[in-house]
Amino acid sequence: MGRVVLVTGVSRHLGGRFCEVLSDCPEVDRVVGVDVVPPPHPIGDATFVRADIRNPVIARVIAQEDVDTVAHLNVIATPLSAGGRVTMKEINVIGTMQLLAACQRAPGLARLVVKSSAAVYGSSHRDPAMFTEDQGPRVVPRAGFGKDSVEVEGYVRGFSRRRPDVAVSVLRFANIIGPRISTPMTDYFTMPVLPTVLGFDARLQLVHEDDALQALLAAVLRDEGAGLVNVAGDGVLSLSQAARLAGRPTLPVPAPAGGWVGQVVRRSRLADFSPDQMQFLAHGRGLDTTRMREVLGFEPRYTTREAFTDFLAARRGVQPTLLPTLVHAAARAERWAGGDR
């Protein structure tokens, strides 16, 4: 008998596409897609159930549908799309708590797959060249998506202790990029000019959206849990290399100007920037993917560079220029940092 998989966050791009992938998989009998709003895109043969994972009703859905595998993809990185930072945290943290409480009460549950993020490692000048799964952050994320991801993983560890019979896999994805997905990183590289942090050239490691879906599928089809697994394409790009490939000019700004520039970008809705995003653009991050190959048994199709060029091929276009606005914001912040208020 094949798996019955419940997928959270199916109204978002990755969740919807994952339902399509599961629908085409012969090892999966049924797919149940859950979200608070109906998906605006196809979800394959999945049955859509309108439910909020922040509500205990999710336990009834798991029981009624005889779910044996839960794929939790509803951890959101974009405050604007979630309706603000408060709502984003509720969905990420409170939603995960309620979902795991429902999973704990489900005797037929055999597998739990959680989409996490390399943001749990933070980003600082003290970071190693490559993070392995057993290394912690040198500077713990204190806000935003990174902090949410740390809390989500903490709740998953607690669940794993209470339900050792459930095979748990937590995939820490590098920044996902591709021709169709929209993330803070894809929004950043479609801006007319790219703000960068003066004196820094971040290391970027990316994963193609198709590879992200196949990695999730590999975790769902495992009989045993993979534990913590970094998922990323081979190789790295520096931010300056990526900007040249994208054909975008850069605007180096002093570190104190990052907050001002980020506010301008968010208010213009060009990109859903957060303070930790500017920190990442200064230092970047590298991931060791040994466990991805040896434990998860997954080999990415795209390297970091190939994933980025595939994204560029689909996203080239003309954007309205905000260069004067960004320059003004950077100059104002620099004067403020120097005491000229």
Rank of each mutant, 00 (worst) to 15 (best):
V57N: 06
I58P: 10
I58K: 10
A59Y: 03
A59C: 14
A59F: 00
A59I: 02
R60W: 02
R60E: 14
R60D: 12
R60N: 14
V61M: 01
V61C: 00
V61Q: 02
A63Q: 06
A63P: 10
A63T: 04
Q64G: 06
Q64T: 12
Q64S: 13
Q64M: 03
Q64N: 15
E65H: 10
E65Y: 10
V67N: 05
V67K: 00
V67Q: 01
D68L: 03
D68A: 07
T69M: 07
V70H: 02
V70Y: 12
V70N: 02
V70M: 07
A71Y: 04
A71I: 08
A71E: 08
A71H: 07
H72G: 06
L73W: 09
L73R: 11
N74T: 15
N74E: 10
N74A: 14
N74M: 04
V75H: 11
V75L: 08
V75T: 15
V75F: 02
I76K: 00
I76L: 13
A77R: 14
A77Y: 08
A77H: 14
T78D: 11
T78A: 10
T78S: 14
P79M: 04
P79A: 03
L80K: 11
S81G: 06
A82P: 09
A82S: 15
G83H: 08
G83L: 05
G83A: 11
G84S: 05
G84I: 00
R85F: 07
R85P: 13
V86W: 05
V86H: 12
V86N: 04
T87P: 13
M88N: 13
M88E: 15
K89M: 11
E90A: 09
E90D: 04
I91F: 02
